[in-house]
Design a protein around this nucleic acid. Structure first.
Length: 469
RNA sequence: GUCCCCUUCGUCUAGCCCGGCCCAGGACACCAGGUUUUCAUCCUGGCGACAGGGGUUCGAAUCCCCUAGGGGACGCCA
């Protein structure tokens, strides 16, 4: 039994589509599961938009999602070149084979593949014209996901365009053949192309590889498959929005595949161990951003404090997001950095995403934080929050040094004395010192800010916000 | 229009191949409670599906047929 060789063959368009990423992932998983090789081949024939930048988007996207390739750009390999634009002589060579077998002809300057079978003319309701059709023998595809699929081609198709460049079906087959690809794992949208490909393999006198057509990813709302124009369809978008790559990768694994038990959040090693083509289901999957977001939050919760803080630093400081809300981080020293880490430690169990962090932690770094109007409405609408604030301010002033236990004790003591509930103090105080009604542990939050800032913020709030009538 | 694929909760899915253990399990979302500290955390509970119709069978989500619906392909794009 020869080694499994699979490939991902993207066309560098400048985008890395989430569907393409899932296809790459399934190929990669299969290679890693079987101990085979994962080949990256760049389908860059006939594209002026084929720039180094466009290639970079794909390569970086793959790296980001944790996929490495054994052969291809940056990796090399014995089956190169891995760019179709550099394989012209191979294509010419293989065209020669078809010529020798008398399976090609020229028409309008293009080279066509000639199907074998009885010819007839028929009106094509789709193309709205009369065309020549062929009664070719049906091709049988033993698809690992779909089972046995039969489909007959009925029209000759283009191998080489008038401009001399080879077309997709031809290069695809020649490359898979010459690169020794054993399993073609690709989207179901290629299933109806596969009969063309089988025709070509046979015309070359070769056995086609094993096919596995995986379900398509449908757009989150509306109908149809997800396309580059759809919101949330690009890998780089999630990267930009600071999603955790492991979370995106984990979510993608679950679109069309499952471990057959109730597990969802899984280490990649475990997925590799369990992944198999026979376990892929055949119905299309709708993309659910909310579940992705949930997965992302789950990864955030469980990652090390060090990494969480690192991710936050990367976004808030290095990418300059804190600067955008008026925090100058350029003069930060070791103490500031330690403070930053402490803040992140406090927030990790509550924050939903890295992306939301500016709103979630901004008030730790600036006195100029906004008071959320919705939160204010909610908190200030009942009781006498201003009176409670004055009371808690006095109580807090008496605490010599802030600690969570001390503060909790003090607030409980206060509420016992006045008969107000702890929440009557907590809500307005959180609003005053953070501008919002949600956030990390209340007492932890006060400790983090420290006595001076807390008292100061309460004072400022008291004088700036009129008591409701 | 032609051909191909698909059809279990709103969504992702388990179960289907090898019919009884399924008046269908899990997760997201949603809703309701709880954690004598709020909350976007955490815990508990609830809501909620075998597309429809015919067969086969003692018995069908599971096998067969039809209908309907969804998706894809039909490019000198990939």
């Amino acid at each position: 039994m020869s080694e499994v060789r699979v490939r991902f063959a993207p066309s560098p368009t400048g985008f890395f589509h989430i569907g393409g990423a899932r296809t790459a992932l399934f190929n990669w998983l299969y290679a890693r599961h079987t101990g085979g090789r994962f080949v990256l081949r760049i389908e860059d024939t006939d594209r002026q938009r084929n720039t180094a930048e466009a290639l970079r988007v794909i390569l970086e996207g793959l790296h980001w999602l944790g996929m490495d390739w054994d052969e291809g750009p940056e990796a090399g390999g014995d089956y190169g070149p891995y760019f179709q634009s550099e394989r012209s002589s191979i294509y010419l060579d293989y065209l020669g084979k078809l010529k020798d077998a008398d399976r090609v002809y020229e028409k309008d300057g293009a080279v066509y593949f000639r199907l074998e079978g009885e010819r007839y003319r028929a009106y094509d309701n789709y193309k709205k014209c009369e065309v020549e059709k062929v009664k070719a023998a049906p091709q049988v595809i033993d698809d690992l996901v779909r089972g046995r699929v039969e489909r007959a081609e009925e029209q000759d198709f283009v191998l080489f365009r008038r401009n001399g460049e080879p077309g997709f079906h031809f290069v695809n087959v020649v490359d898979d053949l010459t690169m020794g690809i054993t399993h073609v794992i690709r989207g179901e949208d290629h299933l109806s192309n596969t009969s063309k490909h089988c025709e070509l393999f046979k015309a070359f006198g070769e056995e086609p590889p094993v096919f596995a057509h995986i379900p398509l990813i449908l757009k989150g709302s509306g109908s149809g498959k997800m396309s580059k124009r759809d919101e949330g369809s690009l890998v780089e978008e999630y990267r930009r929005r600071r999603f955790i790559p492991e979370a995106v990768r984990n979510y993608l694994c679950l679109l069309g595949w499952s471990p057959k038990d109730d597990r969802e959040k899984m280490d990649i090693e475990e997925v590799i161990r369990l992944f198999d083509l026979s376990g892929i289901n055949s119905n299309n999957a709708r993309f659910d951003e909310r579940k992705l977001a949930f997965m992302n939050t789950a990864y955030l919760r469980e990652m090390s404090r060090k990494r969480f803080s690192g991710e936050a630093w990367d976004y808030l400081v290095r990418a300059g997001v804190l600067k955008e809300i008026g925090v100058d981080t350029s003069g930060w020293d070791q103490r500031d950095k330690r403070y930053f880490e402490e803040v992140m430690k406090l927030c990790q169990e509550k924050a939903r995403s890295i992306e939301d962090l500016p709103h979630f932690v901004g008030y730790f770094f600036t006195e100029d934080y906004p008071i959320d109007s919705g939160a204010a409405r909610k908190v200030l609408k009942q009781g006498d929050p201003h009176a409670r604030l004055r009371e808690i301010r006095r109580a807090l002033e008496e605490v010599a040094s802030f600690s969570e236990a001390k503060l909790e004790e003090k607030v409980n003591e206060l509420s016992e004395r006045t008969g107000a509930r702890p929440g009557d103090y907590i809500h307005p105080t959180r609003l005053a010192v953070s501008g919002t009604n949600v956030g990390p542990s209340f007492y932890g939050l006060l400790c983090m800010l420290g006595k001076a800032r807390v008292l100061n913020r309460i004072d400022r709030f008291l004088s700036a916000t009129p008591a409701p009538v």
